[in-house]
Amino acid sequence: MGDLVLHLDNINKSFGGLSALSDVNLHVEEGTTHAIIGPNGAGKSTLLNVCIGRLKPDTGKVTFAGEVLTGRQPHEIAQLGVARVFQTPEIFQEMTLLENVMIPALSHRDGAFRLNATELLSKQGEVREEAEHILEDVGLKDMMMVEAASLSRGDKRRLELGMCLILRPRLLLLDEPTAGMARHDTNQTIELLKKIKSRGMTKVIIEHDMHVVFSLADKVSVLARGQIIAGGDPQSVREDPKVKEAYLGGTT
């Protein structure tokens, strides 16, 4: 712990004159869980999109573990060990849960492209075992032959989390992993995220639910109107008057 591993330096991004991120600087310590909170439209999702290569920042650069991520293709960034859980689950709806997890498992094993058209899927025992193991971790093993489209919203999120975890990412970006979940499901997800905390990966988590933030985060940054207005450990951020004004006072 202690080494800074993810750096966002002077990130600017605007959409047609509307500034979404202005001069954002963020540094995340290795192995910690860093929460980004802020009101709607503060630019939180934009920030994650810049990290994974979905959006190109106008200026500034993102570095992860010594590698510059800015300007790289999304699949290259993913191969460097950056995985993301989206706000609306991005899963393979028409496929079974097992297949959903097998695809990232194969991607982790084979890299970005491999012409393995002569192998048989049914012979990939190790990958399959790994996939079943992950499904067990996220509590979906009983349903592994079920089509993903038939899952509840909460289960879809857990599936997506499983799909990210099997990549053994070094950096996991979570975009509101508990949004729209019932309290019971939220608590389960918190437990799950705590469990994987011990595996030493760095996590950046965007969250609205303060209960989730304060049970998981080591550090909190507050984003409002495209700028980081406060940062530090959860307790000090909670008591920061600026934060109360911008965010906490209004919604919680």
């Binding site: 293709q73 993913a78 995985a83 695809i103 991607s107 890299g111 970005a112 799909m163 990549l167």
Partner: peptide
């Protein structure tokens, strides 16, 4: 099924 997810999974 989902080309976006493929990319963010690290597949070209």
């Amino acid at each position: 099924s989902n080309q976006n997810r493929m990319k963010y999974t690290g597949l070209n």
